[in-house]
Nucleic acid binder design. Structure first.
Lengths: 336, 336
DNA sequence: AGGCGTAGGGTAAACGATAAAGTAAACGGG
DNA sequence: CCCGTTTACTTTATCGTTTACCCTACGCCT
């Protein structure tokens, strides 16, 4: 392509310099080159460029699911900011499958991305050692690994659990159940928050009111229905349920309604995620706002900061505070 | 990296051959090489490879919005199938902004993707000429350009409009309104289907019952609310509304409920998209299934077919038939 | 024994760009 | 008028792979 540009009688290096607005080129020449570039609608081959510079201007994002709008929102805000700064986001989904995730990581590493952003569904840290060996900087989002001194952006999940559980107590629930999420940090920490608030209020946790995630069926509405079905078979029935996330909560609501219960009168339900449609649901769903947009923004900031310096700066941890969003599904009078 | 692999005392070409399972290498040698590769956790530099082969094993996808689960589902199924065949999907969002879309196209072209998949928000075809000039194969999805002899995968949008409108007539609606979508093919064709069915049933279209999309605020719930507000100011009020898509319909429902109307008794509403949560909404929403999964699958099939041959095969057009999914928002007795 | 096909491997050029170092002309100051 | 600086380019090397072609044994056929 550049030979074609050489019909201006200059060397390809000059063209290259124009493309990078290197100062080393005359005004007149620059304009002639630019004109010709526009004429041919020429664009440099990024593969060749990255081969020599070592930078791809590509940032990878691995999420457990694209359909979950929490991650979709992160992807959106992230992609927006990175793009403004000349970086491109390449998104891939691990479908909540650790093995697929590892495969994805390998693929992305082979492409020599400038940074990797991962919401990992792994429970071990070995994958990250591999990444570190490749000297590719990476940022963890949503799911943290305390053992790892890595960049992390996410929400305070213990606070999430506490906020939700305290809210159920505040509206007068006596028997509070919890539908757990996967055994990654958010699931564990939200559970911890749940336990802690119960303890603070002098109640002890009842094992029967805690439903553990079934393997291989993660955070879907269907699982929410099944979990609620189990909960409703307990005696006495719980009168408040904190669900790990909103899809679970929606499933739970559906099942409760199907069994003829009233929400929130008979049983109050709160989820987490504050998804797009929460307020238009059959029973508008109380939820905990995880600030997905801000997670995306903070991650972008962090990534750009890493990329600015040759030597990656010290790992940074950004923890956002969650926020309660109360709606009809917990709209009960205090001390009813 | 390969110099390191050359501590086996062989040339880099041999390594390269092993990596591509070229037959030209002995069993013993192959194994020694593979062992060393595993040992070093070595992965070839894809940038260098694609520089010489001209193939990147990268497929680009440009959608108007990642948050819209219709596109998210397409992305998911597409990505899954492509990955199985060794291709990678790089997703980018145009945010329904034609200019941003063009910029994205330029970016992706510069990266020499093997194929481009676009749900375009453009109304002109010039962008595609640019793509053709670059000799990058491309596939249009969801939004077609009749003037263009290009690959296309999507749903029969005239049928969508007809199905929805006919359904409203079937349940006894007399005054059927339409909240239009953007002026791209789905918007235009669904409107055409709406008109056609009205005509077939001997009714004429009433301009007052057709709300046109506001610029810059596309297909959001908020726009649905405003549109419904306008519709309810007409006299007589419409008793059935066909909304371009489900987010609009959800907005419309919210507004109607706010104004004290009953759905579907006073006004029936149908959308399009059959989104994830349609059945858990305050009023479960009747919708038209666009088969987003199958769109993704068909697109993947088409792309793989294009990639299989050096010379791209003839453009292919895949048109799926939509399906009515009736729920509570149109659950009225016939001839009420 | 000579020729020949083939298995297994090596050499060199090329892909499209950038980086570093070199060069020719113009300029300016003492 | 000479020499050091700039300015504006050009030359050369290099990034990590693949590709096309060359080479050397070895075995086998006649």
């Amino acid at each position: 392509m550049k030979d074609i540009a050489k019909d201006l009688g200059v060397s390809i290096v000059t063209i290259s310099k124009v493309l990078r607005n290197h100062p080393d080129v005359g005004e007149e020449m620059r304009e002639r080159v630019l004109a010709r570039i526009k004429e041919l609608d020429y664009r440099p081959n990024l593969a060749a460029r990255s081969l020599v510079t070592g930078r791809t201007y590509l940032v990878g994002l691995i999420v457990p699911s694209l359909l979950h709008s929490f991650f979709a929102e992160i992807a959106k805000s992230l992609s927006e900011i990175l793009r403004e700064n000349g970086y491109y986001l390449i998104i891939s989904s691990s479908e909540e499958d650790p093995e697929l995730e590892e495969q994805e990581v390998r693929q992305l590493l082979a492409r020599r991305l400038d940074t990797l952003i991962i919401a990992s569904c792994r429970s071990t840290v070995e994958v990250f050692f591999r990444i570190e060996k490749h000297k590719t900087p990476y940022v963890l989002i949503d799911r943290s690994f305390p053992a790892l001194a890595a960049n992390f952006v996410g929400v305070d999940d213990v606070a999430v659990g506490m906020l939700a559980t305290q809210h159920l107590i505040d509206i007068g629930c006596k028997r509070i159940a919890h539908i757990r999420g996967p055994k990654t940090s958010p699931g564990l920490q939200r559970f911890e928050g749940y336990e802690r608030v119960l303890a603070q209020n002098g109640r002890n946790m009842v094992d029967e009111y805690v439903i553990t995630e079934r393997k291989g069926d993660v955070g879907t509405r269907q699982h929410g229905e099944e979990a609620m079905n189990q909960l409703l078979s307990r005696t006495p029935k719980p009168d408040g349920v904190f669900c790990f996330n909103d899809p679970l909560a929606i499933g739970a609501i559906n099942e409760a309604l199907n069994q003829g219960l009233r929400i929130p009168e008979d049983i109050a339900i709160i989820g987490c995620g504050n998804l797009q449609y929460d307020d238009s649901l059959r029973i508008p769903l109380s939820s905990i706002n995880q600030h997905s947009r801000r997670i995306g923004e903070e991650t972008a900031r962090l990534v750009l900061n890493i990329l600015k310096f040759k030597v990656p700066p010290k790992p940074e941890t950004v923890v956002l505070q969650p926020e309660l969003v109360a709606r009809a599904s917990t709209a009960r009078r205090r001390r009813e």
